[in-house]
Design a protein around this nucleic acid. Structure first.
Lengths: 218, 218
DNA sequence: AGTTTTGAACTGACTGGTCAGTGCAAAAGC
DNA sequence: GCTTTTGCACTGACCAGTCAGTTCAAAACT
């Protein structure tokens, strides 16, 4: 008969169920609005209204608007890196190559963006801004995500599977960018296409089979 | 070196050096501030001050804050596409391959981003936002830039130089994303590295020579 | 058992400040 | 003699953050 019993729906409610549920609602409301309008253009009143909660509740749960945003960033990137790492692990279990691992990460990235398009939008929009309050949070959070890709690249170079001419950090950034931009374009301009379709196109690019199925010059 | 060349719209040059100069100053002030803080967080007073101009002048030259921003977008993307097209033309004159043309565009893109980092930042931050006043402007402006890349890809497929398995629009978007994100990362996190360095790393990726100099699986 | 107390969670009206945009007369170019 | 710029006062809307008060389930008490 207790109300708490029914509130433990989906979130891994560690500790108090009610508070956690409220925060979750606020995250979901904030991520959509900020993705659409940007941080500054989104008002706390809007967030509260969308979450079906009073404005005071926002400030009861988060110290300020920007703290809410920072925690939202950490939350989201946590989900992303977990998903990327899982993809790599699964490849490892199946004894796949490092290129297979990269390919699996591309797919995981696409799945993530398909599930949380608003978060991705917001992340890209804020990542390269300078002089903002949450600058340091972004730096940490970016490093977390890119590091997973860098690790796979390094492993691949170590075992000779990938060329040692590769510039690891730069290539990792470029790969992330490739997936990010292709996926956002997919969502924004060709949403009817299937994930497999997008994945295949990016796979082709990754494996360098764009140049007519032959090696490039030099 | 004249500004007139790209201002192809209604406000034709017609001798007016003064007005154009003021607008240019406003563009430059606005692009930096908006890149750093975002559109909403940037005030018209700030823009005027940074441009060394009275607030009234802003409204004498532009109908509103968002109109200033829209024209800024058009202005900047005009410069970018001109630069990309020039790179392709130069390759054509030298009888280069389509892969060479793509490579030249990568370099042109990097040069552009190196010269106008703030504009690039701002462009990326706004491109995938939905429900904003300048949505339609962005769409047009995006298409202009991506179209140049798509044209080269299509030519390459037509003459057999590139695989016809390629998904032209998607690959174009992915390539643009690759350059965009790699370049922004370069600017933000490793600004000391040389353009040639970055270019080489992206070239490698474009030509598919990442996988140890051999073809990928499948 | 029933009654009272506690405190975490939540509410929403209110405040102090900010900012886009206006109006206009005088000055400065061209 | 036009166009353009300046300087500055003004307005009205909007918004982040506050705070005194409410709710209610569980704990404490009788």
């Amino acid at each position: 008969m207790t109300i708490r019993a029914m509130e433990s729906s989906r979130t891994v409610d560690s500790g108090g169920g009610r508070r956690q549920a409220t925060r979750q609602k606020l995250y979901e409301a904030a991520v959509t609005l900020i993705a659409e309008q940007g941080f500054s253009a989104t008002t706390v009143d809007e967030i509260a209204e969308r979450a079906g909660v009073a404005k005071g509740t926002v400030y009861y749960n988060f110290a300020s608007k920007s703290v809410l945003f920072e925690e939202l960033l950490r939350h989201g990137v946590g989900l992303l890196t977990a998903s990327l790492r899982e993809a790599v692990e699964k490849t490892d279990e199946e004894g796949g190559s490092r290129v297979d691992a990269l390919d699996a990460m591309i797919r995981a990235g696409l799945v993530f963006i398909g599930r949380y398009p608003a978060f991705t939008q917001l992340y890209v929009a804020e990542l390269w801004r300078t002089n903002r309050a949450w600058q340091s949070t972004l730096l940490v959070v970016r490093q977390q995500a890119v590091a997973v890709v860098e690790d796979v690249l390094r492993d691949g170079i170590a075992n000779g599977e990938l060329s040692d001419e590769i510039d690891t950090p730069l290539t990792a950034a470029a790969l992330v960018g490739m997936v990010l931009v292709a996926a956002l374009d997919w969502q924004a301009f060709q949403p009817q296409r299937s994930l497999d379709d997008i994945h295949a196109a990016l796979s082709l690019l990754l494996q360098g089979r764009v140049g007519g199925g032959r090696l490039g010059p030099r």
